[in-house]
Amino acid sequence: MVRVEDAIVARLESHGYKFEILVDPDAIERIRKGNIDIENDLAMPEVYKDARKGEKASEESLKEAFKTTDIAQIVVDIVKKGQIQLTTEQRREMYDERRKQIVNIIAREGINPQTNTPHTPYRISQAMEEAKVKIDPFKSAEEQVQGVLKAIMPIIPIRFEKAKLAVKLVGDAYGKLYGELAKSGYITKEEWGKDGSWMGILEVPAGIQGDIIESLSRRGGDKVQIRVIK
C-alpha cells in the first residue's frame, strides 16, 4: 500500500459532488487502462468528498454519480475522467521518466536513413528540445512516440526499421544464448541442423542490431555465427 505522504489526490466533480482518492502516482497509467490493485494502489481504500479533511463521500452520492459503489470501478473512473493533483517534484519526476522512455524507444527502433546508423539518445533529446516537444507524463511512452517522431523529423532524418539476423548456435551456445536471443527480438524462424546446431532468423530493432551482434558474439565466441540479412 502506498503511504499517505507519497500519494497524490485524484479528483472528479460530477452530479454536483466532488470525489477524491489518494492514489499512488506510479499506478496512474496502469489504472487508466483498467488494471487496478486496490490494496496497493490506494493509500486508503476510500472515496472522499474532501481527502485532506478525511471526509468520506456518501454511498448515495457514489450511486448517483457512478451508478455503483464498487470502489475499483469508481477509482478507474476518477483517474480516467478527473484531475490528477501532482506536486511540482512529482510532476517533474514523472515528466523526466516519460521523456527518457520515449528517447530510449526512438534510439532503439530508429536509424538515420542517410547513414543506416542509429541516432544517439543525446541527439534525439537535443532534437526534442529544438522542436519544443511537449510530453504528457500521464500518457504512456508508446502512445507519444509517433507524435514526437513527427516533430523531430524536420530536424534529424530518422526512420523506424527492423533488421533481420541469421543466427547459428553450435554446441552449448544454444543453452547459453537462446534466452538472450528471445529477449532481444522476435524469432521468426528456427530449425535444428543435422549436426545438432540451432539456426534461426531474429528480427530486432535496427537501432540496436550492432549491440545485439556484439553481445552474442562476445558470449558465444566461435560457437555463434551471425549475419545481417539484407
Rank of each mutant, 00 (worst) to 15 (best):
A107C: 10
R123I: 09
F138Q: 08
P118D: 04
I105E: 08
Q146L: 12
K176G: 00
E109S: 08
R123N: 06
E129Q: 07
F138M: 14
Q90N: 10
P157C: 02
E130W: 04
D70E: 14
Q101E: 14
I105H: 01
N112L: 11
A127L: 12
P121S: 06
I105R: 04
I135E: 02
Y48A: 11
Y122S: 12
E64D: 14
F138C: 10
L149F: 08
V75T: 07
D70I: 09
T68E: 11
Q101P: 00
R108P: 05
A173D: 00
K176H: 01
A72E: 14
K164P: 07
E161M: 11
I158Y: 01
A166V: 05
E142V: 14
E180R: 02
K168Q: 06
R91P: 04
I84M: 15
A182N: 13
K176D: 00
H119N: 10
L149Q: 09
L177A: 06
G179D: 14
E142K: 13
D96W: 01
Q73P: 00
Y122C: 01
I124R: 06
R52E: 15
A72K: 12
I71K: 05
P118H: 02
F66K: 02
Q73S: 13
T68H: 08
K183N: 12
I155D: 09
K63G: 13
A65G: 08
V47A: 11
G175F: 07
R52T: 14
D96E: 15
M44F: 15
P121H: 05
P137S: 04
S58E: 15
V170L: 03
S140G: 14
A65E: 06
V47R: 04
P113R: 03
R52A: 14
K150V: 12
K80G: 05
A131Y: 00
M128H: 02
R99Y: 07
P45V: 11
A182F: 07
